[in-house]
Structures are given as structure tokens and as C-alpha cells.
Design a protein around this nucleic acid. Sequence first.
DNA 1: CATGAATGAGTTTTCATTCAT
DNA 2: CATGAATGAAAACTCATTCAT
Lengths: 202, 202, 202, 202
Amino acid sequence: MLNYQPTAWLRNGLRMTEQLDRRQALVHAAFSAIAEHGFEGFRLRPIAAAAGIDHSTLHHYFRTKADLIAAVLEHVTSQFEATMHNDLEPAARLRQHLNEIATAVVVRPELFVVLDELDLRARRDKSTEVDIDHDEQGWRDALAAIFNEGIEQHVWSMNLNVAASVELVIATVKGIRLRPDKAESVVNQLCDLFSPERLTHA
Amino acid sequence: MLNYQPTAWLRNGLRMTEQLDRRQALVHAAFSAIAEHGFEGFRLRPIAAAAGIDHSTLHHYFRTKADLIAAVLEHVTSQFEATMHNDLEPAARLRQHLNEIATAVVVRPELFVVLDELDLRARRDKSTEVDIDHDEQGWRDALAAIFNEGIEQHVWSMNLNVAASVELVIATVKGIRLRPDKAESVVNQLCDLFSPERLTHA
Amino acid sequence: MLNYQPTAWLRNGLRMTEQLDRRQALVHAAFSAIAEHGFEGFRLRPIAAAAGIDHSTLHHYFRTKADLIAAVLEHVTSQFEATMHNDLEPAARLRQHLNEIATAVVVRPELFVVLDELDLRARRDKSTEVDIDHDEQGWRDALAAIFNEGIEQHVWSMNLNVAASVELVIATVKGIRLRPDKAESVVNQLCDLFSPERLTHA
Amino acid sequence: MLNYQPTAWLRNGLRMTEQLDRRQALVHAAFSAIAEHGFEGFRLRPIAAAAGIDHSTLHHYFRTKADLIAAVLEHVTSQFEATMHNDLEPAARLRQHLNEIATAVVVRPELFVVLDELDLRARRDKSTEVDIDHDEQGWRDALAAIFNEGIEQHVWSMNLNVAASVELVIATVKGIRLRPDKAESVVNQLCDLFSPERLTHA
DNA sequence: CATGAATGAGTTTTCATTCAT
DNA sequence: CATGAATGAAAACTCATTCAT
């Protein structure tokens, strides 16, 4: 049961499309181009054209191609200020969080496509790696908090390997990013496996 | 508990580096180049140079860049004739299979890096998509067989969503592909969640 | 009796060689190259070099080779805004017109060489064909006007096949284009055959 | 009234298609390729393929591309051993000859297309020029004979400029080569202009 | 005679970037 | 800010030709 009401982080994304200055227009055009053609086919001229300016003018806003890519990366990570619902109990919070992600994968697939391109790129580009890692750490911490709290509240057994569970969630989300049609069922299956009724009895 | 003894499929892969003709040399060079620089920086001249031939001779073996990429794709997928241990009981088979993958991610990370590049590329290139999908379907079927057999043998509850479980496993593996250091703990955590002692009591 | 005073259309052509901007310089260089080596040996690099620019800069002015050829074609056809001397009586007008062409063949043979190359090329290139045909139609009409007027004024017999005569003139001119040394005598011979004193008595 | 019965020279051409050895097959393939794509697009590989051999084997038969072209030229000129009907009176002979050419232009247009390509090429290639000129000289002589005989027999006035008339005929034929649909009416018009009834009275 | 492999010089075209205006 | 012009390095690909087998 996907919730098509975009959450805070998605509204944030949509709001950006209004009142954007030229710099933002370029970042958006670049973002879309990467989503569509990947970095392999990422060229500056079409970006400038999409923003309605000459391709040499683009260099006024971004000195080099790398600078533009950095801006796109920043744009993408800024979209992931996910809202954790701290009022919910841990298991529900995990489910809610994963469902929001699944929804986002369906509603804004390009965001995840570009993220994947950046993830792959991070292997060759240190600065990309740093930014991505920083962003990911926040997520990692939030997930760890859920599990730790759950263990504290005896929702989950003390034997639960928190670090491994966090990485499992992250890996699953990353693996499902490019398959929107399967996102919902996969996160549900994962939540079911983490379901307290089952695990606490173990 | 990583098993550093490469399995059949990995030995196969390693054996390939000996006694290779020119065509294979080119595929290998291309494979390595993609592993290192991704498709973004994938150029033909260095490939030819690495194989010790003139760049125009490369076109004697592969008419176009796309042809070479197709050969790389084939090379990569041919490495994944994973051995399923059908003698083991389902849960152990799943664990064994995932452990082998985790091992492979550590031992031959480039294989998974290139696979990831191809996965991303498949979004823009139909023929890549077809080949990848075909390959993935075999995997999907093998995993489904594990779960179905497990349910039949009452290892897992009849309520287990087989399709979703299969996709969860696949997503997890894909998500962990680029993080070798976390591969083992993540697959173990996933296997634990699928562990019969827990699920059958639910 | 060649008249070496270039007519309006030739002067126009000669004037073009002064004060030309880069685009024109490229068209001129291309024109000369085609005149000298034909399309068979027509390469872009020497054109750029002749215009004193890098060969990549050429693409700034003409996106493709075909674009440059189109510009050459336009340049060539623009040289043929032949002046018909409507004040003369039909037979004299025909003679005058053909003499001007004969003169031009001698004075600017390259123009006719390139035209011939384009004529042959038109067989394989639709857009070239369209432009050439359009240009030729103007000529055809002007010639038809001469003959029709001549018949009206009883200079020529009503039995004169106008269409065939027009085509005969055109064919003759085309056939003589590459033989400047024979141009004068051929057009004179043709005019003599069309000479009224002879034909009206028939 | 075109005569669609091929004359000796055409039958000759058709006979060639039977019992041809590999060398001839290559020449034929080259001829067709030039007819279709001109020298601009004339490549050896497709020729070899059309003859069913490897492209390097082609060099066994023709050391260089130029050698193959020379063979094509020879093939083409060999097709023009036009039969002059010396039994006819001069004017009829001219008409008969031109009609045969007009027919040929319609029946075997490729022959004339290639001839035109060669004509243009002769401007840059001395050996082509020599062969073409030699061939043309035979034609020139035959035409001159017609006119001279005609003058002798008082068919045409002594004032007729034989050389100019010969060139006029040649120019007309060359000019009409690429326009088969107009060939008949043009040669008829030319013959009419040379018609004795008219000219002798002048 | 036939071929597959190899080459080297060359083709058009692209693209990020710079710079003068 | 904005642009058109220019560049240089490089891209993929082509092709006539040679040579060993």
C-alpha cells in the first residue's frame, strides 16, 4: 500500500522547481541529463542549451565540468534529509522509513538513478566519495538508533547484530533502487523478517 | 567465516587469464578498464595498447565499441555459472550460496564492479538489458527453487512470500556488491533472518 | 569572337574574392578544392588549413561536411544569375547568351568544373539534386521564352519544337563545360543552326 | 521512335555477363559500384564482397585501387565500339548513329554515368585522360567522316564547319548522358537542325 | 589463390575549455 | 553576464595495402 503523498523530503524537492535562478536551472538540467544518459553520455552543451544559455556561458557558473557534477551531487544529497518519525516505536519507525523510501523510488526514480551513478563514480572520484559517505553516515546513524532503541525496549533480542542489520537495510535499499516495481514488496519482506513477533521469540 | 578457497566458478575465472588469444586479451583489457574507470572513461585506444596491438586492429576483432562491450558482458555473465549445492537442505543451500557470493565479492571485486556498471548501462542500452535480464532470470529461478523446496519441506512457513524473498536476496546482493568489507556480515544477517528456527515458530 | 569583358554575373563573382569573412573563406577554399580534386579527394582538413584555421574550428561554421558542400553549391548557383538581354531580338539574344556562357567557361572554368561535380553528385544526394534542379529550371524558362518569342515574331517556324530546342541548348552547354577550348566554336555552330535565315526558309 | 533492339555494341555488353572469370566479376562489381555511388563512395571491400572473395584477395587480381579503376575504364570504353552504318547516306547515318546512342542512354544508363565519372576524373588523372581521349578520337573521326562525305556529296554546304559540327554533336551527347528521358528528343532536334533540306538552301 | 591479421595514415566529428569582445 | 570564435586533444571508425601462412 504505497502512500503517494510525498513526504517532507519530496516536497522539498518539488519546491525547488519554482523560482530557480540560472545556477539552479543548470544543476537541474544536469541532473536530468545524468538520470537519462548516465555520466557516460553526459555532455555540457546540451545542459547549457536546456538552460537557455550559450555553452560557454555555462563556464561562468561552473568553472569546470567537475564543478557542475559536484553541484549535482550536492543537489541530490540535499534531497535526502529523510524524516524519521521518532514518535513511533522502533519497529514501526523502521517500516515507516522503508516505506517512505519505497514510495520515493516509485515517485522520483531519477533521484535514485543519479544516486547510483554517483555511487559508482565515487569509486574513482575521491571528492564524490567523501560527500556520498558523509551523507550515508547520517542514514547509518539513524538506522542504528532504531535498532538500539528496539533492543533497549526489548523489541528485539540483545543478540541482534545492530551493525550488520544496518548494513543489511542499506544494502537492500541500494539494491532495489533501480527496480521501482519491486521496491514495496522487498521492503515489506525485509520488515517482516525484522518483525518483533518473530524475532523476540527466537 | 569467509571461505577463501575460490569455488569452481572463480577458479574458472582465474584460469582464463592464462593462454588467451588476442580476442580474449582485448576482452580482458576492456574488462579491467571498465572496472577501473567505468564506462564514463572507457576508451578504445588504451584497450588496444594494453593488448599490444594498434588501435585500428582492435576493429578487426570488434567492429564497434558496442561489440566489444557486448563481449565483455558475455565474459562477465559467463563467470556466474554459480554452483548451487543441491545436496544441501534449503536453508543451508541459501547460506552456502550467499557465502559464496560474499567470498567472490571479496576475491574478485572487479567482477561485481563491472556488473554494476553494466546494470546501470542496461537502463540506456536495450541489448545490454536483455543479456543482463536473461542472466538474472537464471539466478532468480534458482533462488525461488530454494524457497519453494524449503516451504515444501516445512522448513519455512507457507506464508513466506517467495517472490518477495527472492527479490530481497537479489536486492541485498546487488546493494552489497560495491562494499566488499561488509559483504560477509550482511549476508549472514540476512541468512539469520531467514533462519528456520525463528521463522517456523512464527 | 570572345568577349573578355566579364558580364554582370562574372563581375559579381570576382568581387566576392575581396573582403571575405571566414565563412566565405571556407566556402572559397572548398570550392577550389572541389575544382581541383573533385569530391573524390575532397577532405576537410586542407580546407581549414587553406582558410588558416584549425580543422575543428571549421565545424564551428559548418556542422558537417554536407553543410559545407551545400554552401559551396549555393555559392556556385548564385554565380549564375545570368543576364538575359531582353532588349535584343530572340536570335541575337540566344547568341548573346550562349556567347556569354562560352566566355565564362573560358574565364572561370572552375565554376563549370564544380558544377559538373555537383551535377554528378546530385544523382546520389537528394538535397543537391533539388537545389540544382531549381537553379536549372530558371535557365530552362529563360531559354523557352526566347524560342517562344521568336516563333511569335515569325523568326522561327511554328514547327520548331521549343522544349526539345531548350534541352538541346542545355545539353550542349553541359557537354562543352569541361572543354573550354571548344566552347566558342560549338556555341557558334549551334547558333548558326538556329539561324533564322536558314530555318524560316524551310 | 526509339529502337529498343540493342545494337551490336550493346549485345556485346550483354554477352559479357556470361562466363566471366573472377577478374571480370570484380570489374563488373566495381563498375556497378561506381555507377551507383560514384568515385566519391567507391570502396574496395564491398567490391570484393560482391565478387564473393576476401578483400585482401582482390589485391591478387588488381595490385592497387588504381589498377582496378583502369580495368573499369577499359571495360567501359570497350563497350563503345559503335557500329557506323557506312551503307547509309551521310544525314541518315548521323541520325542513325545518334539514335543508337539515345537508345543506349535509355537502355544502359549506368554505362554513361560511369563514363561521366571517368570524364570528370580524367581532369585529375593523366592515364584516365589518355584512355578517354583515345577512345573519343575514334568517335570524333567517325563523325568528321560523316560530315566530310556529306559535303562532298553536296548534302551539306561547303561552308559547314566540320570541326565545330563534330564538337557540337559530341557536346550534345555528353550533355544529355545523364538525362535519359530527354535523350531522344534532343538528338532528334539536333538532327533536324542538320537536316539537309534546310541547310543546303542556306 | 586465398585469407586473416595487422598496420598506419587518415577520416569526420566531438567536446571541454579559453578568451576577446 | 553573455557570447561567438577558436583551439587542441581526442574520439570512433575506415580503408588501401602488406604479409605470413
